[in-house]
Structure formats: structure tokens, C-alpha cells
Design a binder for these strands. Structure first.
Lengths: 188, 188, 188, 188
DNA sequence: AATGAATGAGTTTTCATTCAT
DNA sequence: AATGAATGAAAACTCATTCAT
């Protein structure tokens, strides 16, 4: 593992555990096994580091979501999105928790960039729901309300799932897929 | 409005907007229209203020949830819990967002107290789901997974709902009730 | 006991235990059973209170010392001074510890006043030693060195003597009188 | 002189002049020619700095005292202790005044450590007096009273002796040795 | 006589960041 | 590549004191 990766990993862990404002540069340096001055060789500012973590995570989600967007069957598409999202939140709980929880710590242009990425990701979900409704595969009140509810439900996984617990990842994604279809009023 | 209420209100707003660690004592004082020294007349430490906000909010939720727990019909009970929770998150988005998002900022005994309150609240939900499954009104994978998913879904409301937007609160709670029953596999 | 006396007593105790700078106005108020605002009805500033305590204690010592100064027998006079000083420090350990230890906390004129009182008190001791030497009852190197050594020795009593301990006050003063004569080279 | 030494020196001077609680971090920084943030490069907390000063000073005294403890002649041993102690207090008046006067500013474990060192040092004196009495070289009332009186007498030197004054250090130690023997009732 | 409210200036300590080496 | 040294600004919190009631 390169030093840069160690810095990133430490930052992801601490930002997830304590939040961006609750994490000091010295904490970061200690967790990465460096002096705080050396840290600045591997990153810009603390906020740059946060943005970089978020960008990587969101870009990855977008790539996967846009691949899924090609799926023509609306029901299959929704289930695939849910399974992908839940899997990502279960496998990378810290990265995803940072993306979901620290957006407000960003300022100015950096914030705009990340918000744009998030919006692009959510648009894939929005389209999937709207398409499903149009095709009469889904029955929802307001599609955007359904989208928000569904995403919140799935993102919460990063807050509690542990791969060491009794629940298999595969079982988790299946259960979430089922719940998603249920809440979206899909045919049984 | 008393000064103490103004302090509390300012704290709720800023903690919700910027997070506990992202809010300084000076910010708090300015928002309450006081000097930072005067602020300390009306609160203990910053963490005491956070605990107090959380305690009030959670105690209120518990009171309402435990009243609903008496409802014998399992389906009706779940819907009532969802509607109450969504309504609380829509009407007091800042208080509830603080409860849901700033627990990690607490330390020691204070943390234990608030965690215990949250657990007590969630137990009412857990019981409702388990009872519903036993009565064959609901069909879920793991009840505790369903509970977590359901609560995350409903709590998310505080992050986006605005009473000034196009969606009526009553419509919101109805849609969430419907989605909840769907995801829990209730009979149609 | 009047309120004013309670304030004084609390101040004496806290100044002795924690020092002037280590004692806050709120500590004082709490120890006296008052609010800090009420405290200011019974005193001027914190420094005024300190001066007043010191003045009372020093004035009392001076009165007693100057009475003893009339004693014609030089040996008897020294012993009487030692016994009086030791007794005062054993009976009022807190007052005397404040006088001996907090002079540096005073500023400006207040300091000058108290230093003058202390100098006046020490002058009686200086005279006693010089007179004893002149009368060939005592044998010392430098009289002022002897005076300082003797006073430090006797004042130390306030730091450790307890009336509840095994040592009777009368035994204490006798032992100190004997040690004093020894160190001043008095005839046996 | 290293920066660390300058910090220490400034702290010793200010703690001696104004007391621990009477000395602010800003005073310390200014006296050491640093910003207050830089100060924290060279010390832990203010209390750590105090402990470090006390530890150094007491450790030095203990080393010297324990070397003297090997002296078999009880009279010679007492005189050697007195001369060493007086010399130390005359040559390092600020360090010793801090040790003697600021112990109450310490809290918790730090206090326990320093009190233990002081007790160890005083034990050497206690043994010397008890041994002298057993050997019939000394005549005292209570040995521990004598020890306290003697130590107070000798420690007082740091409060007034100046190497620039008329009194030679050698004369000072001789006079204190003589007074000590006198107060302990040694044979003439 | 008593006090809750108020505060400007202070406290100790930590912050993120830079830079010379 | 690495870091000790440095710092202005900020952190949370306390200070002694005043004043209207």
C-alpha cells in the first residue's frame, strides 16, 4: 500500500467515525503514521482530501448506475440499482457514510461539484422510477418522494451492516431488493 | 420567547445546518443575540446543550410511540408509527436531524443516556414488526433489518421536506404509510 | 456569625488552600453561601478582601509583639516572641499562611501598606535579637540572617500543625522556644 | 541556550515571582520570546511544565542528600545536609521557591509523584535527626517537629538571599550550619 | 439585602497550515 | 520524502465585576 493510500484510508476512517469537523489534521497524521507536515506532501488541504474521497466514491457509483441504466426491464433495473447501492454501502461503509454525511462540510465550488455528482447519480434512480411508473410496473405517489425514501433506506446500510455479523451480504441485497419492490408497489 | 428558548432555537438550527463540531460557541452566541459569556448563563457546556436538545426530542418521540404501542391491530400500529415519525421529522426537521446525526459527538455518560433513549424508541418499532409478522399481517426477511431500513427511510424526511413546498404534510404521511406497508409485505 | 464574617472566613480558607489567584469569585461565593453578586455587598474587590485579611492578621501580631517588646530581659523577650508567633500560627494557620504566602498577589499601594506592616513586625524581632547580642545573652552571625531564619522556622508551623494531632499546643511552643534559643546561641 | 531551556528558564522565573496561577501562558510565551502556540511545541500543558521543573529540582536534591546520608558521623551529616540545602536554595532560589511553594497547584497523579519525591528527600533529614538523637549527639523534643522547623528555616533562604548582597555564600552556609546545630541541641 | 442577567477581557489549549532544512 | 519549528486565528470556557430590579 502506498503512503498516499494510507493517508486516504486513515481519512476515510476518521471522517466516517468522527466527522470532518471532528477530525483534526494531527489525528489524521497519527492514523496514517506520519507527521502532520508530511501529510501535506500527499494532499492539498483537509477539504481537498474530503472532496477527493467523495469524488472517487460518487464517480464509482455513477459508473455502475449508468451501466445499469441500460437495462430495459424496469423492474429488473430498480432491483439492480438497489442491489448495487446496498452492496456498495455494505462493502465500503466508511466511504459511503462520508459521502452521505459530510456534504455540508464542503464550501463553494467544491460543494457545487460534489452536489452535481450526487444529483447525476440520483437522476438515474429518478428515471428508473418514472420509467417503471410509466410502464405500469410500479405504483408510487410522487416519484421524487419515492426516490428520496428509497435512497435513504438503502444508504442507511452503511451505518449498521457488518460483514462479520450473521447476515450474508447476498441475503442483505436480496432482502433490500424485495423491500424496494414492495415500497414501490411493484406487481407481486 | 425567553432567552433560554432563543438559545435553544439557535443551537438547534446551527447544529442541524453545520453539525455540532462545525458550530462554534461564537456562532451560537451571535445567532442567539448574546455575547458568548452570556451564553454560559443559559447553558452548561456546548455538549450539555446538545444532550438537552436530543433528550427533549427523543422523549417526545418515545411518549408518542408508546401511546401508539397500545394499538392492537398490527397493520394500523405500523402505519400510525410511520405517520407519527414522518410528521415529527417534517414538522421539526432540525431537532430530529440533530438527534439522528449528532449522536457520535456525544461522549461518556451523556452518550449512554441518549443511546438508551434511542434504543427504547426503536424497541417499539421492533415489537410492532415482530408482532405483525407473528400475526401474519407482515412478511419480512429479518425483522431487525426491516426495522432499520424502515426507520432510515422515514427519518430521511427531515433532510428534504419543506412545509413551503408543493407537498402537503398529510399527503406525505399517507405516501410513507403506503410505502411502509409495501416494503413490509403487508396484504394489499 | 454575621454574613460579613462568613465571607471573610470563606476567603481565608480558600486563599490559604488554593492561593489568591487559584481562588475564583464564584468559589468564594459558593463557600460563603451567597451569589457572587451578593458577595460584592460585603467586600470591595477581591484584592481588597485579601488586604483586609492581611491587615487584620498583621495588626494583631504587631499589637502582641509590641507588648512583648517592653520585656526587659532579652532572653525572656525572644522566647515570648517565639511562643506568641508559634501560637498564632498554630491557632490561625489559614490567616497566617495567607499573610506569609500571598503578599506577591498585592499590587501598588496596597502592597506597600502591607509590606510596611510586615516590616514593622519584623523590626521588633530584629531589635530583640540585636539587644540580646549586645547584652551577650545571644550569639549570632549576622542578626538579620538570624531574624530571617528564626521567622521562617516559626512561620512554618502554619503549614503542618494540627490541633487534632498528638502534639499539644503548649508542648509545641515550648519546643520552639528551646530551638530558638539554641539557634541563637543563648547560654544554657 | 536551546529554546527549550529558554522556556524552562522563563517559567521558573515567572512561577517564582508570581506563582503558578498568577502566571499566564501569554506571560510565559512573551518571557520566552515565543508565540503562545509555539510554546506548546516545547511543553505539554502548563502543569506539565511545572511538574518537570519540580522533578528536576527535587531529583537533584535527593541525589545530593542520599550521597550525604552515607556520612557516619551524625553531627557532620546534619551540617552537610544543611549546607547543601542552603547552598541549593541560595544558588537556585527560583527553582527551589517553586518546589517549596507551588505544590498545591498540582493535581492528581502529578501531585502524588512530586509529593513522593519530597517525602523521600525529607526522610533523609528525618533519619539524620533520629540517628543523631540515638547517638546522643543531638537533643530535640519531637524529631519530626525538629525536622520541619529545620527545613523551613533553611528553605527560607531562597526568599531573600542574593549573591549580589554583602553576604558571601560560604558565610551563609556556615551560619546556617551553626544555627542548625544550636537548635538541635548539639554539643558545643 | 439580595440576585439573575450581562459582559469585555481573559483563560488554557488546539486549529490548519507553511516553511526552512 | 520527510519533519521540527513556527504561528495567527480560533477553539471552548472562566474571569472579576457591574447593574437593574
Amino acid at each position: 500500500m502506498t503512503t498516499e493510500e494510507r493517508v486516504r484510508e486513515a481519512a476515510v476512517r476518521l471522517f466516517a467515525e468522527r466527522g470532518f469537523h471532528g477530525t483534526g489534521i494531527r489525528d489524521l497524521a497519527q492514523a496514517a503514521g506520519l507527521s502532520s507536515a508530511t501529510l501535506y506532501h500527499y494532499m492539498g488541504t483537509k477539504e481537498d482530501l474530503l472532496v477527493s474521497i467523495m469524488r472517487t466514491s460518487l464517480t464509482d457509483l455513477i459508473t455502475k448506475a449508468e451501466a445499469i441504466a441500460a437495462e430495459p426491464d424496469e423492474t429488473t433495473r430498480i432491483v439492480a440499482l438497489v442491489e448495487m447501492h446496498v452492496r456498495a454501502h455494505a462493502e465500503k461503509p466508511r466511504e459511503t457514510a462520508v459521502v452521505d454525511g459530510e456534504m455540508r462540510a464542503l464550501t463553494g465550488e467544491r460543494r457545487a461539484e460534489i452536489v452535481a455528482l450526487r444529483d447525476r447519480y440520483e437522476q438515474v434512480w429518478q428515471d428508473a422510477i418514472v420509467d417503471g411508473v410509466k410502464a405500469k410496473k410500479l405504483t408510487v405517489g410522487e416519484p421524487s418522494v419515492a426516490r428520496l425514501a428509497l435512497l435513504e433506506m438503502c444508504s442507511g446500510v452503511s451505518r449498521w451492516y457488518s460483514p462479520d455479523g450473521p447476515l450474508e451480504l447476498r441475503d442483505l441485497t436480496i432482502q433490500y431488493g424485495t423491500m424496494a419492490l414492495g415500497m414501490l408497489g411493484a406487481d407481486r
